[in-house]
Design a binder for these strands. Structure first.
Length: 192
DNA sequence: ACCGGGATGTTCT
DNA sequence: GAACATCCCGGTG
């Protein structure tokens, strides 16, 4: 129970990812439960931003665990990762979908295109947009909540038998089964 | 339901 | 200059 400590994140991203399912993310008035995640690594992961080593964009991925790596993509979208592993190692988990719990009215004003509540956070860039998370949060620390973004364990355990699949939207590294999700939810980024 | 294309601009080759 | 860890809209069946 309570805010997730740094030690929770300071492990292999393949280990952390499925345990993030059902954890609660909070920012401002918005609160939601993590439903879908993907693990990324470094040089050994052809689908990772870190595959060719450190650059100005991805340097947070190489830093201490528990920080947020937020990047801009397709000219208009932000995506958020939780940094994992040891300091100096490239490792992170992409937060791909959330079930909205609180702050839905605020989410709707930020995401007028969402027709139904389950469309508010059913994708990595939908979720950041709904919560108001963007590049100003890159590098912020979840363990101290220095930017206001926090991850909580509210006592709901991760699924005993989570759904698992290949990662979404990649050209290289698409064959690795590093995506996990809560089965049976209708607000995943895709049908589970 | 499923598919195709356009939006939009940063990052790295 | 190409690629991009995406989303939305409008077509068709």
């Amino acid at each position: 129970m309570g805010r997730l400590p740094r030690d929770f994140f300071a492990r292999d991203s393949l280990e952390v990812a499925p345990e993030l399912l059902n954890k609660v993310i909070v920012f401002g008035n918005c609160r939601g439960r993590l439903l879908e995640v993907e693990a990324y690594k470094g040089a050994d992961d052809p689908g990772s931003h870190g595959r060719r080593g450190m650059t100005p964009r991805n340097e947070v991925m190489f830093g201490p665990a528990g920080r947020l790596y937020v990047y801009f993509t397709y000219g208009m979208h932000w995506c958020a990762n939780v940094v994992c592993g040891a300091d100096g190692e490239c490792s992170a988990v992409l937060l791909r979908a959330v079930t909205p719990l609180e702050g839905l009215a605020e989410m709707r004003t930020r995401r007028p295109a969402a027709r139904r509540d389950r469309d508010l956070c059913s994708g990595p860039a939908k979720f950041t947009s709904a919560f108001g998370i963007d590049g100003t949060h890159n590098g912020s620390d979840l363990a101290t909540a220095d930017s206001g973004v926090e991850l909580f364990d509210d006592g709901t355990p991760p699924p005993r038998d989570p759904g698992r699949s290949t990662r979404i939207g990649l050209s290289a590294g698409a064959e690795l089964p590093w995506r996990w999700y809560v089965r049976g939810c209708d607000d995943l980024s895709r049908r589970g």
